[in-house]
Each structure stands twice: as structure tokens, then as C-alpha cells.
């Protein structure tokens, strides 16, 4: 941007133009790498986040586990009857799906708040901004680590056959976290500027929970609707839920997920490069 800039010019365009300069792309990349190398910092932030939420309770973070267990049991028994499903089959399916959904939803919902909640720190301390995104990934992973026991207990109880297929959970978790990374980067920046974004995303995620096969099975849908295949969350959930249930994940699911990962990363990289330098002004 040149210095003949006049206040009152279309600020939006001026910002975007400046943000898309080559120099900004380099800085964004540096921010993301430098942020990663501060892992001690963002892991500590994440642990303190989780601990703090449950500090004044006896159970501590195991509230996460307990509330997940209650949710799964209540929904499982109710919807198992509504759908006329055998509990032996349905409860593990629901528990696995719910645990995975919880991870995805908290990545996106908390991702929106990544920079907003870090306002004080961002304005006082000069750390790479990406640490606040990594912090979200870390705290969602901690929550997953508490939730997964609910699934394991259910699986054990109903004798779900778990073998080497379970190893597919690892790449699935990794790619879900990578998707959480770009989503938090993208929506985090957007939310810093537009404060109604977290609300919009929150209601959207609620809707998506019902139209994504988590409490219902894809087979229950007559004629395998096309929009089910077009729902990225269906594939995201499926790549991790299938191996949890001892089934091989579908190739189509994985291909679709890889596609949205690449697309999302490209989008977020461009967006972060363009607007990263504005975040401190926005919050």
C-alpha cells in the first residue's frame, strides 16, 4: 500500500491488497511454523484451559467423561427403541459416532473463539498468533482423551471385535485435527472481525449434528440420498468411527476427506496470509 492512502478509502480493499503481498504470505508461514515450535506454551495453555473449567469440582476433568457417558446411555436407550435397533449394535455405533462428533464440533466451535478469547494475551504479548489455534487443537485432543473411555467401555461391554483395524484411528484422528487446524484458522480470523460468526457457526453445527449420521445410521436412509454423500461431516465422522467399530474405513470416505483437507488448507492459508496482520487490530 502506498502512503497516498486516504482515510475513508474502501478500507476492505486496501487491507486485502496489502495482505496478499508476497511478504505477508512469508510472514504467515513463519507465524505458523514458529507457533508450532512453541508447543510447550500452547500445550500448557490447553491443559490450563481444561483444568480451569473443572477446577472447583471434585471430579475435575472427568466431568467430561461422565457427561459423555450419560449422554450416550440416555440417547442410546431412547433412540435405540425409536429406531427399533438392537442395543448390542446401536450403542457402540452411537458412542463411537458421538465421541468423534464431539471432537469435530469442539474443534470448530472453539476454533471460532481462538483469537477472541486470547484478546488480552494478543495485545500484551508478542507470541506467534498461530499458538492460539494450536491451543484449541490441544484442548480438543485432551477432551477426546477423556471421552474415548466411554466408547471403550461400551465396546468392551458389548464385545465389539477390536483388532489391527483399530490402527486406522490414528491417521483418521490426525487428518481430523488438520481439518480442525484450517477451520480454526479460517473461522477464528473471520470471527475476530465479525462477532456474529461464532453464533452462526454454532447453530449450523447443531443442525449438522442432526443431518449427519451420528444418532442414525446411513442404512436407515432410504435410497442413500446424494446429499448424504455431499455432507463432508459424514465422511469425517466415518473415517474415524469405522475403525473404532472394527470395520475398515471406506476408500471413498478417505478420498473425500483428503480433498476437503487440501481445499481447506489452501483456503485458510490464503485467508490467514491476507488477514493475519489485522487480527491484533480487530480483537
Amino acid at each position: 500500500m502506498s502512503s497516498d492512502y486516504q482515510p475513508g478509502d474502501s478500507f476492505f480493499l486496501v487491507q486485502l491488497q496489502h495482505g496478499l503481498e508476497r511478504e505477508q504470505l512469508k510472514r504467515a508461514w513463519h507465524d505458523i511454523r514458529a507457533g508450532w515450535s512453541r508447543h510447550e506454551l500452547w500445550v500448557t495453555l490447553a491443559i490450563q484451559d481444561v483444568r480451569q473449567r473443572y477446577r472447583r469440582s471434585k471430579l475435575g476433568p472427568f466431568w467430561i467423561t461422565l457427561s459423555m457417558a450419560i449422554m450416550v446411555l440416555a440417547l442410546g436407550v431412547l433412540y435405540g427403541q425409536i429406531f427399533g435397533q438392537e442395543l448390542k449394535d446401536y450403542l457402540p455405533f452411537l458412542a463411537a459416532g458421538f465421541v468423534v462428533w464431539n471432537l469435530i464440533a469442539s474443534l470448530i466451535n472453539e476454533g471460532c473463539q481462538a483469537f477472541i478469547l486470547a484478546e488480552g494475551m494478543i495485545r500484551q504479548l508478542n507470541a506467534p498468533l498461530s499458538i492460539y489455534v494450536y491451543r484449541i487443537l490441544a484442548s480438543a485432543s485432551i477432551a477426546l482423551f477423556h471421552n474415548i473411555w466411554v466408547y471403550l467401555a461400551v465396546a468392551f461391554w458389548f464385545g465389539v471385535k477390536l483388532d489391527w483395524v483399530l490402527l486406522w484411528v490414528v491417521p483418521a484422528l490426525l487428518i481430523i485435527l488438520i481439518n480442525g487446524f484450517w477451520a480454526a484458522l479460517f473461522f477464528g480470523v473471520l470471527s475476530a472481525r465479525f462477532r456474529d460468526v461464532p453464533l452462526i457457526i454454532g447453530s449450523l453445527m447443531q443442525l449438522l449434528f442432526f443431518i449427519t449420521p451420528v444418532i442414525w445410521k446411513p442404512e436407515m436412509l432410504p435410497g442413500r440420498a446424494l446429499w448424504l454423500q455431499l455432507n463432508p461431516f459424514h465422511h469425517l465422522v466415518e473415517i474415524m468411527r469405522a475403525p473404532l467399530l472394527g470395520q475398515l474405513p471406506g476408500l471413498a470416505n478417505w478420498l473425500f476427506v483428503i480433498l476437503i483437507t487440501l481445499g481447506g488448507l489452501a483456503l485458510a492459508a490464503l485467508f490467514y496470509s491476507a488477514y493475519r496482520w489485522r487480527i491484533a487490530y480487530w480483537i
Binding site: 500500500m1 502506498s2 502512503s3 492512502y5 486496501v14 496489502h18 510472514r27 494478543i122 495485545r123 500484551q124 504479548l125 508478542n126 496482520w277 491484533a280 487490530y281
Partner: peptide, 13 residues
């Protein structure tokens, strides 16, 4: 001070 700290990146310069 915030520009010096790298917290605010300038619009130009």
C-alpha cells in the same frame, strides 16, 4: 510500542 513489539503490523512502512 505495540508496533515495536510486533503486535501491530503497520498499514505501510
Amino acid at each position: 510500542l505495540r508496533v515495536l513489539a510486533g503486535i501491530y503490523e503497520p498499514n505501510s512502512g
